[in-house]
């Protein structure tokens, strides 16, 4: 049986997620053994044309050129996996969705006329059909490995959608919100990181975006009691997953209060 071919694509992003693939040092040889890496500019200049069995897509759609390129990639890909907060919710650059892009362009660039950009930063799934999403800023490399392993044997990958709290309890980390009064986004954030921040006595920053059924209003009310000012709550919801519908809706409401 021919090895499945894999292509890795980048849109507006920092490259951190695709580097997770290279970061799988111990497993990389086995990965390379099982799949044929056909297009992965970060790793190799070798390039083979499509179609590809699997495409990993990092980054968000922010330019008119992106709009056509993502369609081309979709057309050449059997399975399309969006990886990371940028590709799954629009990333931190989706902060522009709440502001005036023309003003940004004027302030930042010496020759604004050269800049061709969209007014928004959006997820890959807003433009084409996405078969699987890996949340996180950055993604967890073991989740990526799980996806590759699952695809190779044709099973469903195990990707949690419950809250970060479950990971805290699984690893025996005591709750920073209950024990220290530290504001934590964990109860409304999707698991996947392994509860890294609470393990270092920090509240969760929400890198993996909304969990399967996030009750943002209840957590917000509790943050009020912990003494977090509403503008700080709004900022906490507006980071890497600012454009995730549940975070966006709630933070917009709180900002208008």
């Amino acid at each position: 049986m021919a090895k499945p071919s894999l292509a890795v694509w980048k849109f507006a992003s920092c490259d951190g997620c695709q580097l997770s693939l290279l970061d799988l040092e111990d497993e990389l040889l086995a990965v390379a053994d099982g799949i044929d890496i056909a297009h992965f500019p970060e790793a190799t200049t070798a390039h083979r044309g499509g179609p590809y069995d699997v495409s990993l897509v990092e980054g968000s759609i922010t330019t008119p050129a992106d709009l056509t390129r993502i369609q081309e990639i979709r057309a050449q890909s059997g399975m399309l996996v969006a990886i990371g907060a940028c590709a799954t919710t629009g990333g931190i650059q989706a902060l522009r969705n709440l502001a005036d892009i023309d003003e940004f362009v004027r302030v930042v660039y010496a020759r604004p006329a050269y800049i061709q950009t969209l007014a928004t930063s959006t997820a890959i799934a807003d433009h084409v059909k996405v078969d699987l999403e890996l949340a996180g800023c950055p993604i967890n490399k073991y989740q990526l490995l799980e996806v590759v392993q699952a695809l190779l044997v044709g099973r469903k990958p195990t990707l949690p959608t419950y809250s970060v709290c479950v990971e805290c309890k699984e690893r025996g980390t005591s709750c920073v919100m209950v024990a220290d009064g530290v504001a934590c986004l964990g109860p409304i954030t999707r698991a996947g990181c392994g509860a890294i921040c609470p393990a270092f006595a920090r509240g969760c920053y929400g890198c993996f975006g909304p969990s399967e059924s996030p009750n943002v209003d209840s957590l917000a009310a509790w943050w009020d009691e912990l003494g977090v000012a509403r503008p700080d709550l709004v900022r906490a919801l507006r980071t890497f997953n600012v454009n995730a519908p549940q975070f966006k809706e709630a933070s917009t409401r709180y900002a208008q209060e």
Binding site: R155, C165, P187, I188
Partner: peptide, 23 residues
């Protein structure tokens, strides 16, 4: 309720589990 599951995780009698394949 946040449906965060903390209550069931700390409860000393809750025993619900699931299994996950590993390859």
């Amino acid at each position: 309720c946040l449906t965060c599951a903390n209550c069931t995780m700390v409860c000393p009698t809750c025993f619900c589990v699931t299994t996950e394949p590993v390859t």
